[in-house]
Computed example of a mutant assay.
Amino acid sequence: MIEALFPDGAIALVASEAMWEGSLFPEEAACIERAAAKRRREFTAGRLCAREALARLGVPPAPLLPNSDRTPRWPEGVVGSISHCGGYCGAVVARCQHFAGLGLDAEVAAPLDPKLVSRICRPSELARMADCAPPPGTSWEKLVFSAKESTYKCYYPLTRTFLGFHDVEIAFSPAESSFTATVVRDAVPAAAGTRNFSGRFACDGARVFTGVALAAPAGTQNSV
């Protein structure tokens, strides 16, 4: 399902059951030796899933270590994103010559806690969604949350700048299963020259998925 969230040129994969119990490079294992069992399983599934996706890009296997902020340190010339959610793990990768950034998010489909809605959603987002039925099993508020998470995963590696939930405005196009995300906070930098991101969403009844892909700036797409 997550493959449909991204344009051609991006490789998106879901972790297999075996990946949750697989073997890491020693350098990777050292990063989580003191982590709880749940975190170790998630880290392992994410790294092995990402490594398989990278292999399909022609990238040789190598340790995928975390940066100091815990974001993955992708191989040179590659962008990517990893998401975990209640026993689910997916990863997406692509060459920098095609994409400046990628963001993937998966969430349990259950509607967002009402106490969190005003913290996550801008009033204009709630107004736009008021008269439109959400996908079965979830809510537009939960999809807003996921869309902002995937946007942030795409934005942050390019700017190293934190965003609040109200710093981004989401507008859905339900018929196309797509959305636009706009960074509306003027005080933060643009990412690869833009504040506008395009994404897609999906729901399988148990989880919601969102993906954002930011094309490489003109002049880099044909570079090698």
Rank of each mutant, 00 (worst) to 15 (best):
M1R: 11
E3R: 15
A4W: 06
P7K: 11
P7V: 04
G9S: 10
G9E: 04
I11C: 15
V14E: 14
A15Y: 05
S16I: 02
E17T: 10
W20P: 03
F25I: 01
P26V: 05
A35H: 12
A36G: 12
A37T: 13
A37M: 14
R39N: 05
R41D: 00
E42L: 08
E42H: 12
G46E: 11
G46C: 14
R47T: 00
R51C: 04
A53D: 05
L54S: 09
L54P: 11
L54I: 04
R56N: 08
R56Y: 11
G58I: 01
V59N: 06
V59W: 01
P60E: 02
P60N: 02
P61R: 07
P61F: 03
A62K: 14
A62W: 07
D69N: 15
T71H: 09
P72C: 07
P72K: 14
R73V: 02
W74M: 05
W74C: 07
E76H: 13
V78I: 15
V79D: 11
V79I: 04
V79Q: 11
G80F: 01
S81F: 08
S81I: 01
S83Q: 02
S83C: 08
H84E: 08
G87D: 01
G90M: 12
V93P: 00
V93Y: 10
V93T: 06
C96D: 06
Q97V: 04
F99D: 00
F99I: 00
G103F: 03
L104V: 03
D105A: 08
V108E: 13
P111D: 11
D113N: 15
D113T: 05
D113I: 06
D113F: 09
S118V: 04
R119K: 13
R119L: 14
I120P: 09
R122M: 13
P123C: 04
S124Y: 00
M129Q: 09
M129H: 09
D131G: 04
D131H: 14
A133F: 01
S139P: 01
E141Y: 06
F145W: 13
K148F: 05
Y156L: 13
P157K: 13
L158K: 08
F162M: 08
F162K: 14
F162G: 00
G164E: 09
F165L: 07
V168A: 10
V168M: 13
V168D: 04
I170N: 00
P174F: 05
S177Q: 15
S177E: 11
S178N: 09
T180Q: 13
T182A: 09
V184D: 01
A187V: 09
A190C: 13
A191D: 00
A191R: 02
A192D: 07
G193Q: 04
R195S: 03
R195L: 04
R200W: 03
C203Q: 02
C203A: 15
G205D: 00
R207Q: 13
V208H: 09
V208A: 07
G211W: 03
P217A: 08
P217F: 03
A218L: 14
G219F: 05
G219D: 00
G219N: 08
Q221S: 12
N222Y: 13
N222W: 14
